[in-house]
Design a protein around this nucleic acid. Structure first.
Lengths: 340, 340
DNA sequence: GACTGGCACTCGCTACAGTCGAGTGCCAGG
DNA sequence: CCTGGCACTCGACTGTAGCGAGTGCCAGTC
């Protein structure tokens, strides 16, 4: 059944009021606070329909209405008006982010900024290695059988790993390895690396081949397969806002989920080209997060996407505001990355 | 006034029971569960004295007694018997920590392990740069005016920073800079570096001097002064155990404090030579953490200390168990570090 | 002198009944 | 199709009462 405009207005009003007050909203309060131009009784009828359609519900008889996940979904998709950032917010973003010296620094500042502006939990993924290309590989001999491999990516990411060589390699050998590796790998995307690394081993001289083999195994294992991705988190204290009303009383499952990097990555890491994504309550794939909403988007220099960022909060969140903030921060960070 | 042995026994029993049950403990329950050899009435008299002395208190009249911070302090200092780790725990530690490939990996595993074993919030400081010495400095040219400085410390820490040079430097110049820097700095403690870095600039040739000056500024600023120290955190979800009974109802301040690296560092970073430290409730210097206790110690290869680790939980915590675990984990990590 | 049993007392907790009022659904009339 | 009116529901709050764990004190005993 199609909902007419007024019913949509009513739903919008309910969402807005509920988000603002955190209390079930009744028909009378609604007509008082919003110029709907009709009486409470009419609104009640509309509410009855909205409830039947599953957009709102009553916590208990004789209480006001509360939006359901489905109601928020409709609100986000069709009803929310874009809320422009206040100049103060724009300034805050700028002020907060300029002066970052480091990729680490950028990420940390960003995640704190997001947490602060949205007053929710913020998550920022480091630029994905899979989406980065190699800028330089450095091999630092620690001893004749130990090598520190340092990979510098064009996104600013720097990763290192200790490699235990199968047999001693002289400094000259290390130089050769370094040259060879750089020659072949610089400029390539890490996700494309595996075949190249293979070739690398084959092209090595007989005596260096075992060393190169270990080296490439480590490269593939740790840089491509394993902890590849990193995330930063901030604002968990914001989960306690609104008492225990949100999150049906227990922060436990949420805090647990937030401790799992894998989960965080799934939350914000699945980036389609620059699309902002909102997952509301039940739409979340993790049971622990069924009482939360996640607003996430990709970021990167220009139009490319190198990583994701987003915030997590109660389903009862200020979607327009949060969306605007997330989008703006992502853009700023992208610009920042483009400069370096 | 001196407390006789039985009173101390009573206090110990109260602490143990309260920690176990989380409920105020009364005189009757006490004689039932502990072989004190006296009647409840006698215990009551002892309790009255203990209360007068400030070791225990009554949440309200007609409730049992609860230890005060002071009571816990006495318990920790004089009454707790060392609880040896169970073989299962020992195995858990070993199993969890072997196979770490990386300093990052070691730290992450350690912090999760600690959180899991103690069921509390765990904090692990990365080996302090100030206590590390330089193993190698690598300069990677990104462009003629940009340099990536990578410092590898003997503790396994690797730090990098981008340096914007005041004027272009050719690859040959970079090589010279690298050699000079390594020659002077390798093997020195970072805390001793400042004068050496100064000398470094003076010894550079006229044309390289500006570059070296910028380089050394960056080195000092970022490696010695600024984020120098890092920490890892895990187990925040454990704060929600015990409902809202601990922490007088609000996790907020605690979560806030835990988000501040500075605070975490202060908590666990002030390491006297291998002494284990327990700070109980009020003894904490941060107001936000007045309802928590912190057990921390230093760790490092052999007897030297390169960093701190510890756990944070409700004042009502299992001190003997926590202390044993923290100590054991610190020792294991130290050994692990000694090997690499 | 130290310990014990007994006793009166305190006070938080729970259960229950009663009241209040916000909010609803429904209906008849405009 | 909208509105005002009305009866109804039910959660929130209040006040009362009884229960029971736990205490402090005291007189008596070893």
């Amino acid at each position: 059944m199609a909902l007419d405009d007024r019913k949509l207005d009513v739903l919008r009003a309910i969402v807005e009021d509920y988000v603002a007050t955190q209390e079930p909203v009744g028909s009378k309060a609604l007509v008082e606070r919003h110029a709907l131009g009709v009486s409470p009784a009419t609104v009640r009828n509309d509410m009855a329909v909205l409830e039947e359609e599953g957009y709102i519900r009553q916590p208990h008889t004789s209480a006001g209405r509360v939006p359901t996940d489905r109601g928020y979904r409709l609100f986000v998709d069709r009803l929310s008006r874009i809320k422009p950032l206040s100049p103060a917010e724009r300034r805050a973003i700028e002020r907060f982010l300029v002066g970052a010296v480091d990729l680490d620094d950028v990420v940390h500042r960003t995640v704190r900024l997001l947490a602060q502006l949205t007053r929710q939990v913020a998550v920022v993924q480091y630029p994905s290695l899979a989406r980065s290309s190699v800028r330089h590989l450095e091999l630092v001999p620690i001893s004749t059988t130990r090598l520190m491999v340092v990979m510098i990516a064009d996104t600013g990411r720097v990763e290192q790993r200790l490699v235990e060589l199968p047999s001693p390699v002289e400094p000259a050998g290390v130089t050769t390895l370094r040259q060879l590796a750089n020659e072949k790998l610089v400029g390539t995307r890490l996700s494309d690396t595996p075949p190249l690394v293979q070739a690398l081993v084959e092209e090595s001289s007989a005596e260096l081949r075992p060393a190169m083999a270990t080296l490439s195994t480590v490269l593939l294992e740790t840089l491509v397969e394993r902890h590849e991705e990193r995330v930063a988190l901030a604002g968990t204290a914001n989960l306690t806002r609104g008492g225990l009303l949100d999150f049906q009383g227990s922060l436990r499952p949420i805090l647990e989920a937030l401790e799992e990097e894998v989960i965080l990555l799934k939350l914000i890491g699945e980036v389609e080209p620059s699309r902002l994504r909102v997952r509301i309550g039940d739409e979340n794939e993790f049971d622990n997060l069924r009482s939360t909403s996640v607003v996430s988007t990709g970021y990167g220099p220009g139009v490319t996407v190198v990583g994701g960022l987003g915030v997590l909060g109660p389903t009862r969140m200020d979607y327009p505001g949060t969306i605007a903030t997330v989008r703006a921060v992502a853009r700023y960070v992208g610009d920042l990355l483009a400069q370096s």
